[in-house]
Design a protein around this nucleic acid. Structure first.
Length: 933
DNA sequence: CATCCGACATTGG
DNA sequence: CCAATGTCGGATG
């Protein structure tokens, strides 16, 4: 259950007549407990409560229903009950059906409220449903409740008005919802008359069955588009009851006043939604939540792409807020300096070209208002209106509804800031009418001209390229107020790896990159935002920072994207290295993200941030940040088809592309019932990453071409080959379809099966201190999930097993989230190795043998067991230490001090190796030696 | 032909 | 259910 569903369930519960016996179970059910769990509790066999009327669920909550007026004592009894402690309850709750008291035993926080009111505090109880990390939801239950109510209304309206769900009318529907939200908010504050004018009007003027609700709303909307002075002449005449509504307009109420038809249910939902405390709506999170209302995909995943406030600040603070705050501190009470800062802020533009429902813009606006308020306080000018124009917070959003919401969220933020800093009276005085301009553009950010939407010289907006979602006309031609300032671009654009992009998205990237590189097809979708931001920065003073998937700073994308960004004169001004994305959807394992800030005027002291597992942020000041988000020189490692030094050639394993029909576990193999002869002829052990690391047995059918006819006719193997054939034929990939012709074989075969092998898994856990590398006897097949050196000298293994190599791979190769992802072309072939003498190679061979022997002593421990970082066997660790010692002496004559020094040396050697003068020096001589030996 | 990647995918405690 | 940790084959160079 997500937060919205839970809210709905407990709101429903609170409406029911109080049933003392049933309440604890109904309460638990509302938080997603299954019937089976409840019936067990009911039966009492795992209800260990020692309080009368108590229900205790292990690791969760101790609830007691008590006689009227004894809630306080009962809660105390629950608190002191030994059973509460023993069952590790997180909450205690007592109620008599009139009041309700509860305590969060982990945090110590308590809640007391009237019983019917407890759904308003449901955020407090969310940890019961395993939703504990989202502070914003916990603190703002009203946003979740509003979302739930609006969602119901939306679904009901579309059910009754299917034509409003069509593409042509979707915008009208979204606009209608935005109008409603504005009315609710205005109703909750004094923007309307302060006594619930809107809801009262709908309730009193509308029939109970909802049949004329649309007409009432249409009239109200029309009123808000007519200036007070012009109302007497309005055609058709405006009824008196509508005259109490102010003139709002602001684009929000211009245009069609069409309203969908209401059912009785829809009208109830509308009134229900209007009953919430909308004045407390928090535009930080509200927008992200409510946008799920109109999005079929997002509705289930509720807020999946919502960026939490701390994460938004990770972008905005180093981008420009820190600097503003520093300037504020520096100004002290100096009136002139304070005024300068205020003037500077009035000219700052914040631009989010993937703004969604306006999260980043709202937070940026609120932060700047906070700074401005402090300036005004120090200057004794708290009464002053804000000089920060809302229209300087611009955005582009692809989807229509979030774009509507973004503007609304900013308007709400402005009003709330005015109330907070200037008081209700001043806030109201200037709030209406709304600015008629629309500064959130609905369109495709990669196709629109950012300079037109956020023009450097204030020359107005013109929309170019194919704006696929027909931007409303009134959003053009908006000049900036207060020209000549700085622009800060920010946001969390969508990430999508090349494999997952639609043709349309690919075309978006093509349009941006095709003139600069032929390899644009391998870039993540998010790369488009970085490139456009860099281009923008060449035309005007701007800096940009985005949350991004970490893959654009890893592996193959680095040499494609970053040289192009750097070529525009931009550098990485600050960055957050990889951290795990967290969001509202519990099932969403998420993605690993980075934050990268770029600027063409970056200062020398650049901040490189990292987030530790407990969420703490570590900042380090460095001179330069390279494209791998590592402090140090600007190095880009290009993939290489062949080794740059004397190391052996590393190959990919063999790729079955068999749909599972050529592979077996031990059990499956036995159940095939092959004759001993056939087994020997056709079955081989196959090893990929998992088999090697976890010590698992797996087998494959491996058929030489001359045996193909026999195998096809074989009663057991033949049908399997047929399945491989049909699987390959059904592929969308042409090469795979052709592979159907040799269905007795792996689609891509890289070995004869008669070689000794040094194996390296292609993906492995980041928790180990060394890369898992192994040695296999003849006869083993290596799958495409591992790399292999076939019949190679063992000293190669010593290199791969070294700390130096781990650091190199971890830095220049791609990653799977944060896991190591090995690559022969990017990581092995480019690995900088000094010239190795014969003696060196002998020493390294001995080291590799020692590592293998050290492992053998623990037979049958798996690689995963042996390299578990917390209990790696001493003898194995010593063998690796010796290996590192020998290798590092070859590099610099001593051990390296730390990984930073290792990486510096490796980058230095790589640069020498690949520069024109030093090209492949170690390789030439070593190659000759190799041939001689 | 030969990989590199995944707002991932699957497993196993 | 979530924390740990690597499949699999398509798209791409």
């Amino acid at each position: 259950m997500n937060a919205v569903e839970i809210e709905a369930a407990i709101s429903e519960l609170a409406l029911q007549p109080f049933d003392a016996a049933e309440f604890p179970f109904a309460f638990l059910a509302a938080f997603g407990n299954k019937d089976t769990a409840l019936s067990r509790l009911r039966a009492g066999n795992n209800n260990t409560s020692d309080v009368s009327g108590g229900v205790l669920q292990r690791n969760n909550i101790h609830i007691a229903v008590c006689d009227v007026g004894t809630v306080g004592e009962t809660l105390k009894a629950l608190r002191t009950s030994p059973a509460t402690t023993k069952a590790k309850a997180k909450f205690i709750l007592a109620t008599d059906g009139q009041t309700l008291e509860a305590e969060d035993l982990t945090g110590g926080e308590t809640k007391t409220c009237d019983y019917p009111d407890f759904p308003n505090h449901f955020g407090f109880f969310l940890p019961l449903a395993g939703i504990s990390t989202i502070k914003e939801i916990k603190d703002n239950p009203i946003d979740v409740r509003a979302t739930g109510r609006m969602n119901k209304l939306y679904v009901e309206l579309l059910r009754e008005n299917p034509d409003w769900a069509t593409n042509e009318r979707r915008h009208d529907m979204n606009h209608f919802m935005a109008r409603l939200i504005f009315c609710f908010f205005a109703d909750g504050t004094d923007i309307f008359n302060g006594t619930g004018l809107f809801i009262q009007t709908v309730e009193q003027m509308g029939e109970r069955d909802g049949s004329n609700t649309h007409a009432v709303l249409e009239t109200i909307f029309r009123a808000m588009n007519i200036k007070i002075a012009e109302r007497a002449n309005a055609q058709p005449r405006l009824p008196n009851w509508a005259n109490g509504f102010p003139y709002v307009n602001g684009g929000l109420f211009s245009g069609s006043t069409d309203v969908p038809r209401f059912t009785r249910m829809a009208r109830t939902y509308l009134l229900h939604a209007g009953g919430l405390k909308w004045r407390e709506i928090n535009p930080d999170i509200f927008g992200s939540m409510i946008q799920a209302v109109a999005d079929d995909e997002e509705r289930g995943a509720l807020g999946m792409h919502y960026t939490s406030v701390p994460n938004i600040l990770k972008v905005l603070s180093p981008l420009f807020l820190d600097e503003l705050r520093a300037q504020l501190t520096e100004a002290g009470d100096n009136e002139r300096k304070l005024l300068n800062l205020r003037k500077r802020m009035a000219r700052i533009r914040v631009f989010d070209p993937a703004c969604g429902s306006g999260n980043f813009l709202v937070i940026a606006y609120k932060q700047m208002r906070e700074i401005e308020a402090e300036i005004n306080r120090r200057r004794g000018e708290l009464h002053l209106g804000s000089e920060i124009p809302l229209t300087n917070f611009r955005g582009i959003e692809l989807r229509d509804f979030p774009a509507e919401i973004a503007r609304l969220a900013l308007i709400i933020a402005e009003f709330q800031c005015d109330v907070l800093y200037r008081g209700q009276k001043d806030a109201l005085a200037e709030f209406l009418p709304l600015d008629a301009q629309n500064w959130i553009v609905c369109g495709n950010a990669l196709r629109l001209d950012w300079l037109s939407i956020c023009p450097p010289t204030g020359t107005g907006v013109k929309l170019v390229a194919d704006d696929l979602f027909s931007a409303p006309l009134n959003q053009t031609k908006i000049d900036f107020e207060n020209e000549g300032g700085e622009t800060y671009i920010c946001g969390n654009p969508p990430y999508l790896g090349s494999t997952w992009q639609t043709d349309e998205q690919k075309a978006d990237l093509e349009a941006i990159f095709t003139t600069r590189t032929k390899n644009w097809k391998s870039l993540d979708y998010v790369a488009g935002w970085f490139m456009k931001a860099a281009d923008y920065g060449t035309k005007t003073k701007a800096a940009a920072a985005f949350v991004s998937t970490n893959s654009i700073c890893q592996g193959q994308q680095v040499p494609i994207l970053w040289p192009l960004v750097f070529a525009t004169g931009h550098e990485i001004a600050f960055a957050y290295t990889s951290f795990k994305w967290t969001n509202l959807a519990s099932h969403n394992a998420g993605v690993t993200v980075i934050i990268v800030g770029i600027a063409s005027f970056a200062q020398r002291n650049r901040k490189l941030f990292s987030v530790s597992e407990d969420g703490n942020v570590n900042a380090k000041e460095v001179d330069n940040i390279n494209a791998y988000l590592v402090a140090g020189k600007q190095v880009v490692v290009e993939k290489s088809a062949k080794p740059l030094t004397s190391i052996s050639e590393m190959m990919f394993g063999s790729k079955p592309v068999d749909g599972g029909h050529l592979l077996f576990s031990q059990d499956e193999l036995e159940s095939l019932g092959l004759s001993q002869q056939d087994k020997e002829r056709f079955i081989r052990p196959i090893v990929g990453s998992e088999e090697f690391i976890g010590g698992k047995q797996r087998f494959c059918i491996w058929i030489e071409d001359e045996d193909a006819a026999y195998a096809h006719a074989h009663p057991v193997i033949g049908p399997r080959l047929q399945m491989v054939r049909s699987m390959r034929l059904s592929s969308t990939k042409l090469a795979t379809q052709r592979g159907a012709e040799w269905s007795h074989r792996f689609d891509e075969r890289r070995q004869t099966g008669d070689e000794t092998v040094v194996i390296v898994p292609s993906v492995s856990s980041e928790s180990r201190d060394y890369l898992p590398v192994g040695y296999m006897p003849k006869g083993t097949i290596i799958s495409n999930l591992a790399f292999a050196l076939y019949d190679a000298p063992l000293w190669n293994m010593a290199l791969i097993a070294s700390r130096l190599h781990l650091i190199w791979i971890g830095t220049v190769c791609g990653k799977l989230e944060t896991r190591y992802r090995y690559s022969n072309t990017i990581g092995w072939n480019t690995f900088p190795v000094p010239l190795l003498t014969e003696q060196n190679r002998d020493d390294l061979t001995t080291c590799a043998e020692d590592i293998l022997l050290a492992r053998d002593a623990h037979f049958p421990a798996t690689i995963a067991d042996l390299y578990n970082p917390v209990n790696m066997p001493d003898n194995l660790r010593r063998a690796h230490e010796r290996n590192d010692e020998v290798l590092e002496r070859i590099y610099i004559g001593r051990r390296f001090k730390n990984d930073t020094e290792r990486l510096e040396k490796l980058f230095e050697l790589y640069t020498k190796m690949t520069s024109a003068t030093g090209k492949a020096k170690p390789a030439i001589k070593a190659t000759r030696e190799k041939k001689a030996s």
